[in-house]
Design a protein around this nucleic acid. Structure first.
Length: 793
DNA sequence: AGCACGCCGACT
DNA sequence: GTCGGCGTGCTC
């Protein structure tokens, strides 16, 4: 906090002509003059700092990586979200541009302890890793340092690395080729083949790995040939491609329905006026929102501007990429978490230097360094993943609004089930409200059936996941060779171990949460801290062997499914099967190619999938999220069910949706069954109004946490007293209370929530708390301030 | 994040 | 009188 402000540095004459605002520089900082990475956020003649100033050591960039826009945006963001300016500047850049710092110990005098000598046995310079080293040895090393026998150096490395590949160049002439060919044994097959290839290569070059694959040879052969001077090797910089252009078929704009035309005319007109405008595009699933986005983006490009589109991470499926890359070709840059750091960096560079004019990405892509933005599209605008949960706690929609204002451009928020906040703003005319209320092919929405699991469980045994209705529907579709999507709502729900004799539940030793059973690794895992232990055979409390698991996980359902339908081919998609890079896309591709009959997964399968042969969607447990003490529970449940229902019967086949629930009469389920967003909106707004929740109130959440429960509790009450005195009587403070999961990784969490409509002093009060929080940090008390949090538990 | 300084208790 | 742990302030 104290360091989160600009520092003045002298520009050495040699950099005077080169340095520009927005560049990264390396500067000496602090007492040891260790080098750190900084951003140039302003240049001035003269100096208003009274102390001695240091010189910039070197320039890291040749041209600025931050624009005037990103610096202004970072300043606004820091203030808006109570974050450090430095972390807001960092978030603008790909992580590969962040400097990595490390320490290095150098042995200067050999007369040291044997243990220390041992440490330096391989080299006189050792990178110090304070977490991994034995504390006793560390103490010895530090003692040797004070006596001057070891020196400590601070290193900074820009992890920005370009990808280099080895290419092979021909080094033979026709004459030398003949000589070498004659010298070679006829049965030296690999060398002969290589020799022939090289002469054919002429003046062009080929990547070494490609050549090895092509000729079926190994690097040893190439090395051999290199020593014979047949070829030359050269390292060249290669762009890491986020996607392969050749994988996509170019598409042309589709014919629009009259409803789509009405919508696009309004967006296009506003783009022609070049002024900031926000639209809420409310369109049922299958109403052709994507085509509207694409044509609006094409319009922006036609005007010589650029386009930015955000989609939730889980919706960044191959299908969405296919749509956009198919339409805009190599103009598209892709930014999502599936890319490696290097791929991300290269995509970022393409945007920065203007080669990519269309950006599609998840949350952080909102900071993409596009110039002259003509339109920003946020698809599935209600998605919680647009809010970042760590510092800086920004919401992508708020950043989008800022950028739309800066560029005087249009912002389109699209969803079948808009967030109540957005929908309410459309009502008030803050956003222009656009509708697409019919599905494009005039197909009726799928029939939705609610199954009361209270009755179903009574009929069969007590721990069952499939009602008879769902079973028979699955059997029917399997017979017809149609596909099925089954969703398991995992939120706040997973399988845990409980003893049937004494009721003991297996808990994580570090967190206040039960351990989850994982069948693949045959272990119990904590989803919060990563703790892992064996599956118990006996109850640790009473020793009974009647310890069983309860609840439902995808793995368990998969097994059950296999028992019920032994011939069905099931694909499982959850965090466990998609952790590896590219697995997500791979599973969906397999399903798309009809290599499986049933796709079983968690929420991630609800978004954006469009498979014509899916005629049945089953939701195994619709209401596990309803039980959560979060006022958004109904909204989330409604949104999820509406979305997943939209996956059924999208082409010529009629679809059916079966939702299993323990609360069939709940309005969120009843209205999801009818797919009636508007009525849900009215109903839910009523509930929010009565209970005083957003959008009728603004909210701020303050959390205090510490290793000792007492410290965290004391701090939150102290903050409570402070806040209370600066608020008007119209505002309400909820709490302080311990968080629903009070302990995570042995850190205790307490929170309070402020609900207000208008508080002129709140900003100042929160800033004071933020300023003071640094003192508490020394005692290990962490305080976080979250404006408009999306998770209250 | 990392360093120095200074206060204070414990020990020689 | 001195060593070292720990809280505190500062970094252009």
């Amino acid at each position: 906090m104290q360091t989160d402000k600009p520092f003045v540095y002298q520009i050495p004459p040699k950099f005077e002509d080169m340095i520009q605002v927005g560049m990264r520089v390396s500067v000496p900082f602090g007492n040891g003059n260790r080098l750190i990475q900084g951003f140039v956020i302003g240049l001035k003649a003269g100096n208003d700092f009274s102390g001695k100033i240091k010189e910039i050591k070197s320039l890291i960039d040749v041209e600025p990586v931050l624009t005037e826009e990103s610096i202004a945006l970072a300043k606004w963001l820091a203030h808006e979200t109570y974050s450090f300016l430095i972390s807001c500047l960092q978030v603008m850049l790909p992580s590969a541009m962040r400097a990595k710092y490390y320490k290095q110990l150098v042995l200067v005098d050999d007369a040291v302890d044997p243990a220390v000598k041992e440490y330096f046995s391989s080299s006189k310079k050792q990178i110090l890793n304070e977490d991994k080293i034995d504390p006793a040895l560390l103490k010895q090393l530090m003692a040797a340092r004070t006596s001057g026998k070891i020196s400590l150096e601070y290193l900074m490395k820009d992890s920005l690395v370009e990808k280099k590949v080895q290419v092979i160049l021909n080094n033979l002439t026709a004459k030398s080729y003949k000589i070498e060919k004659d010298k070679l044994r006829a049965n030296a097959l690999n060398l002969n083949r290589l020799l022939d290839y090289l002469i054919k290569l002429g003046d062009s070059a080929i990547e070494q790995t490609m050549l090895e694959q092509k000729l079926g040879i190994t690097s040893a052969v190439i090395k051999n040939a290199e020593s014979k001077n047949w070829l030359k090797r050269k390292a060249i910089v290669k762009r890491r491609a986020a996607y392969k252009q050749s994988d996509f078929v170019r598409t042309t704009p589709k014919e629009l329905t009259s409803a789509q035309k009405d919508v696009i005319v309004k967006i296009n007109n506003s783009m022609d006026e070049n002024k900031e405008k926000i639209f809420l595009l409310e369109g049922v699933t299958g109403s052709g929102k994507t085509e509207v986005y694409l044509q609006a983006m094409a319009k922006a490009l036609k005007k010589g501007k650029t386009a930015l589109m955000l989609v939730p991470e889980i919706a960044l499926t191959p299908q969405m990429v296919k749509n956009v890359v198919g339409r805009f070709g190599s103009n598209v840059a892709l930014l999502h978490s599936g890319l490696s750091e290097g791929e991300r960096l290269d995509e970022w560079r393409r945007i920065q230097n203007g080669r990519a004019k269309v950006v599609v990405g998840a949350r952080s892509a909102i900071f993409a360094p596009l110039k002259k933005i003509g339109i920003i599209v946020i698809d599935e605008e209600h998605e919680a993943s647009y809010k970042q949960e760590k510092m800086p706690r920004y919401h992508a929609i708020e950043v989008a609004k800022w950028r739309a204002r800066y560029h005087n451009c249009s912002l389109v928020l699209g969803s079948a089930t808009p967030s109540l906040e957005s929908r309410a703003r459309a009502q008030k005319g803050v956003y222009e409200w656009l509708h697409l209320s019919e599905r494009i092919n005039k197909m009726p929405l799928p029939e939705v059936e609610l199954i009361d699991m209270r009755k179903a469980t009574k009929k069969i045994d007590d721990n069952v996941d499939f009602s008879t209705e769902l079973r028979s529907e699955i059997a029917l579709r399997l017979k017809r060779k149609e596909q099925i999507i089954l969703m398991l709502n995992r939120r706040g729900y997973s399988s845990f171990m409980m003893c049937r004799d004494c009721g003991e539940v297996l808990l994580c030793p570090n967190c206040d949460i039960s351990l989850t059973l994982h069948l693949d690794s045959r272990s119990m895992k904590c989803h919060y801290c990563g703790h892992e232990e064996k599956i118990p055979q006996k109850c640790p409390n009473c020793g009974s062997n009647k310890i069983r698991y309860y609840g439902t996980g995808t793995q368990k359902v998969e097994q059950e499914l296999q028992n019920l339908f032994p011939k069905a081919r099931v694909l499982r998609m959850d965090v466990d099967t998609t952790r590896r890079k590219g697995m997500h896309a791979k599973i969906l591709k397999q399903f798309g190619e009809k290599k499986a009959d049933i796709l079983l997964g968690t929420q991630m399968i609800a978004k954006g999938l469009d498979y014509p042969d899916v005629t049945l969607v089953g939701v195994l447990n619709a209401d596990t999220a309803l039980g959560l003490a979060d006022f958004r529970a109904s909204e989330r449940t409604f949104q999820l069910l509406t979305q997943v229902s939209g996956r059924a019967g999208r082409a010529d086949k009629e679809g059916k949706v079966i939702i299993q629930t323990f609360n069939p009469e709940h309005y969120a389920l009843q209205l999801a069954k009818k797919q009636d967003y508007e009525r849900f909106f009215v109903r839910e707004m009523n509930v929010r109004h009565q209970n005083g929740y957003p959008p009728y109130f603004y909210t701020v959440q303050i959390t205090a946490s510490a290793k000792e429960e007492g410290l965290a509790a004391k701090k939150i009450y102290q903050i409570y007293a402070e806040i209370k005195s600066s608020l008007s009587t119209k505002s309400i403070i909820l709490g302080p209370t311990p968080k629903a999961i009070m302990r995570i990784n042995n850190q205790f969490y307490y929170q309070l929530i402020i609900k207000y409509k208008k508080e002129l002093n709140l900003d100042a009060a929160l800033n004071t708390i933020l300023q003071k929080s640094q003192k508490d940090e020394r005692q290990g008390i962490l305080i976080s301030i979250d404006k408009e949090p999306l998770n209250f538990i």
